[in-house]
Design a protein around this nucleic acid. Structure first.
Length: 260
DNA sequence: AGTACCACCTGACGGC
DNA sequence: TGCCGTCAGGTGGTAC
């Protein structure tokens, strides 16, 4: 679920619920998703306020005092702000002075929670590429044309571009009529331009439509058809293959490997 | 530099 | 109804 658009939506939710309130307490389940010990989280966060958030690719950061809380959702997750019992699978609760609580849910425990001093450093340590909505065309072009792998792999490679995952990469390739196994370094400048434009358009549209889970994407999008009757939005047969180990849906009628 | 495969986890779904 | 295998939109490590 959480690729760039979903994380941007979490950010908005975080901003509208949890900024500028004193943190009264924390509850973290002892779990592998914690990258920073509970004690440290407590020491650094209690008494502080979240002042602002940032998103980079699939990561969300919230600054409190001298630290940034880093949230990564893995394949499943959500934020919930409310009073009373936290939702199921809550791994971290941040309790505010008004007795409301921000809960970070992570059913499959594939996410991560921790504290860092610098967002920039974190991004560099992870080797993340530029955020998919902030990358310039020149950077993008270089990232694509220097890649010897497939387009699918390239778009999903967080070291090249941060934020695009399995389903949005399928969408981008569908809308630009590129076969997912096309070699990235064989793409013409013109095609790269179209992929760049499509990426921005699709990610922005998805944010506006509240993401894959909570909203509804336009009906000419491929994504809603992944689990349907195996037809693309135009009625052609969809094909499902594995590309670098990930389930990949594409429309053989429109996405040809040899397309100019 | 890429790819293929495994691991980490849990829930949902289809087949029997 | 219930059990079982398979799959799921994440990353990270390994060996080739």
């Amino acid at each position: 679920m959480p690729e760039l658009p979903e994380v941007r939506i979490y950010k908005k939710y975080f901003d509208s619920t949890s900024l500028h309130q004193k943190i009264k307490g924390l509850k973290a389940s002892a779990n592998r998703i914690l990258e920073t010990p509970k004690k440290t989280l407590n020491k650094k966060l209690v008494g502080e306020k979240f002042e602002k958030t940032r998103a980079h690719g699939k990561y969300l950061f919230a600054r409190a005092g001298d630290n940034w809380l880093v949230l990564h959702f893995g394949m499943t997750g959500d934020l919930h702000y409310g009073k009373g019992e936290p939702p199921e699978h809550t791994k971290l609760q941040v309790l505010f002075e008004n007795d409301y609580c921000l809960s970070f849910q992570n059913p499959r425990k594939l996410g991560k929670v921790g504290l860092v001093n610098s967002v920039q450093e974190f991004i560099e340590d992870k080797g993340l590429g530029p955020d998919a909505l902030r990358i310039s065309y020149d950077q993008f072009k270089k990232a694509v044309q220097s890649s010897r792998g497939t387009m699918k792999y390239t778009l999903m490679n967080q070291k090249k571009v941060a934020g695009v995952g399995n389903i949005y990469s399928d969408e981008i390739l569908y809308q630009t009529r590129i076969h997912p196994e096309t070699k990235a370094n064989q793409l013409s400048d013109d095609k790269v331009r179209r992929v760049y434009d499509a990426t921005r358009r699709i990610l922005r549209t998805a944010i506006r439509h509240k993401g894959v889970e909570k909203g509804e994407l336009p009906n000419h999008y491929l994504i809603p058809y992944r689990h349907g009757d195996k037809k693309c939005p135009k009625g052609h047969d969809l094909k499902k293959i594995k590309v670098s180990g990930r389930s990949t849906y594409y429309c053989p009628a429109e996405q040809k490997k040899s397309a100019k």
